[in-house]
Computed example of a mutant assay.
Amino acid sequence: MKKDEVPQDNSKSYQGQNKLLYAVDESGHYQGVKSSGWEVESFATQLAVDDLNEQTAQALAQARRGEVSPLAYHMLARRFDIASLSAASGFFQWQVKRHLRPAIFARLPAKKINRYCDTLKVSRDVLFSLPSE
């Protein structure tokens, strides 16, 4: 992309900030150029955020019905998935999946609960509860 072709679409997702992109200047060398956003990127970002919000709402509804543990909601509300929560908490992925079952989660020892609390940056009370409607 040439320096004068860098998009400047004032993206909402940038929240008034600029992003550094690299473009080719007149002499053919790469140079850093600030961009205020690109409409296509903004659209794709909004779709991803909407999808994450939908997954979080579904997890909240499932947790309220007792189909999954509150961990499922808190994991998604903090933008973790099973793989990233596993990596951040030190549990294996199969363990995180298992802890999403309400009966298993309710019996977890304090040491394991504390690992989730530390990873998700929530208190024990918050981890075991769900937001009110």
Results as ranks from 00 to 15, higher is better:
M1P: 10
M1Y: 08
K3C: 06
K3V: 13
D4T: 10
E5P: 02
E5V: 02
V6I: 14
V6E: 08
P7E: 10
S11N: 13
K12S: 11
Q17D: 10
N18Q: 12
K19N: 05
K19M: 12
L20Q: 15
Y22S: 09
Y22E: 09
A23Y: 02
A23H: 02
E26C: 03
E26V: 04
S27P: 05
S27M: 11
H29V: 09
Y30A: 12
G32K: 14
V33Q: 00
V33W: 00
K34W: 13
K34D: 07
S35E: 09
S35N: 08
G37I: 01
W38M: 10
V40I: 13
V40T: 13
E41T: 08
S42L: 06
S42E: 15
S42G: 10
A44D: 14
T45Q: 13
Q46R: 14
L47S: 06
D50R: 14
D50A: 14
D51K: 14
N53A: 13
N53V: 03
Q55S: 09
T56G: 03
A57D: 14
A61Y: 02
A61P: 04
Q62E: 12
Q62F: 03
A63L: 04
R64D: 06
G66V: 06
G66P: 05
G66M: 06
E67L: 11
E67N: 13
S69H: 01
S69I: 02
S69E: 07
P70Q: 08
P70G: 06
L71V: 04
A72S: 12
Y73F: 14
H74I: 08
A77P: 05
R78A: 08
F80L: 10
D81Q: 08
D81N: 15
D81W: 00
D81F: 00
I82V: 15
A83C: 07
L85T: 02
S86N: 11
A87P: 03
A88L: 07
A88R: 03
S89N: 01
G90L: 07
G90V: 05
Q93R: 15
Q93F: 01
Q93D: 11
Q93L: 07
Q95R: 14
K97H: 12
R98S: 13
L100Y: 00
P102K: 00
I104Y: 04
L108R: 00
P109H: 11
A110H: 11
K111T: 11
K111M: 08
I113V: 15
R115C: 09
R115K: 15
C117N: 10
C117M: 10
C117H: 03
D118P: 00
T119R: 01
T119M: 06
L120Y: 04
L120H: 05
K121G: 06
V122T: 08
R124G: 05
F128G: 03
S129L: 08
S129G: 10
L130G: 04
L130Q: 02
L130T: 01
L130F: 01
P131W: 02
P131G: 03
E133H: 08
E133N: 14
E133F: 07
